[in-house]
Design a binder for these strands. Structure first.
Ligand code: FES
Ligand code: FES
Lengths: 144, 144
DNA sequence: TGAATGTTGACAAAAATAGTAGGGTATAAT
DNA sequence: ATTATACCCTACTATTTTTGTCAACATTCA
């Protein structure tokens, strides 16, 4: 039940881009350096995020990546699902994915559904803007 | 973010034992056959569950496994954690496990914490008895 | 043009998962 | 006592997933 590095690195990187939202494209190298990650690996993650419409890219010198829309309109859920796939704890509670036999009478399926729903509710309710706000709040609290 | 077969098989098997709670020891073979699982593999899971105090065992002929206490007092959470380890989505939100550097200012950690808490709340609120009750409810609903 | 940057696909090491295999030990029934 | 049953334990292995690396290429800016 752990997230892989894809989800963990990816969310951090998207948060970094959120910090610089509106400043034009940020080169991958900046993000990778700031977090001490492999540029090549992060590239794969960004490729997925771009194909899913969460990032825009600008090629060439002075190019880079930027959020495709406002931090307010990008949820943690959309990021994690792009990088990790569906967040359900078992395949049979993913729509159209896989059906166990005898699932009409399966009680454990009800458990998986409840876990799935509670995760979805959390990740879909948090946006990148919420994370920015929380950082401001943390900073103020720690300073005073 | 998937559960492994340990958690999935294990919960189903524990549910089977719950159905037969109070009937004395049930041989592993019965459970394995009923679910078409490898007896040897299930044995490993039961070994963990027994060491964690969730199962009792009786050796020898007519022996087998049984729940260590009432289905009402065994939560899904205790079963899944025994078999899967802590259900947190990242190591840094497990007490005493691992600390990221700079975690005082880490906003993603707040996200992991909220995911962790919501999973915990679900799995710790469901007991084996709840699962038995849900099955009765399902059966009645489907019959009528 | 040349340097900076994104794009793509193939490849590979390492770790985790999902079992198998087999010998040992305790107990009940006979 | 003997035997069949069934738990107990450890080691091993095949497969899959994760976590990257690498190289060649395309685009843009100065
Ligand atoms: S229906 Fe998939 S676990 Fe029961
Ligand atoms: S503190 Fe662990 S991810 Fe930030």
């Amino acid at each position: 039940m752990k997230l892989s590095t894809r989800g963990r690195y990816g969310l951090k990187a998207m948060y970094q881009l959120a910090i610089h939202y509106g400043e034009g494209p940020i080169p991958l190298k900046n993000i990778a350096d700031a977090q001490n990650l492999s540029e090549n690996y992060l590239e794969q993650l960004f490729s997925s995020l771009r194909k899913n419409g969460l990032l825009n890219s600008v090629r060439g010198a002075q190019g880079g990546y930027m959020l495709a829309r406002s931090p307010r309109d990008i949820t943690v859920g959309s990021i994690l699902r792009t990088l990790e796939g569906n967040l359900a704890p078992a395949d049979c509670v993913i729509d159209g994915e896989y059906d166990c036999e005898n699932e009409e009478n399966c009680v454990t399926k009800l458990v998986w559904m409840r876990i799935r729903d509670s995760i979805d509710e959390v990740v879909d309710s948090i946006t990148l803007q919420d994370m920015l706000d929380e950082y401001e709040y943390m900073k103020r609290k720690n300073k005073i």
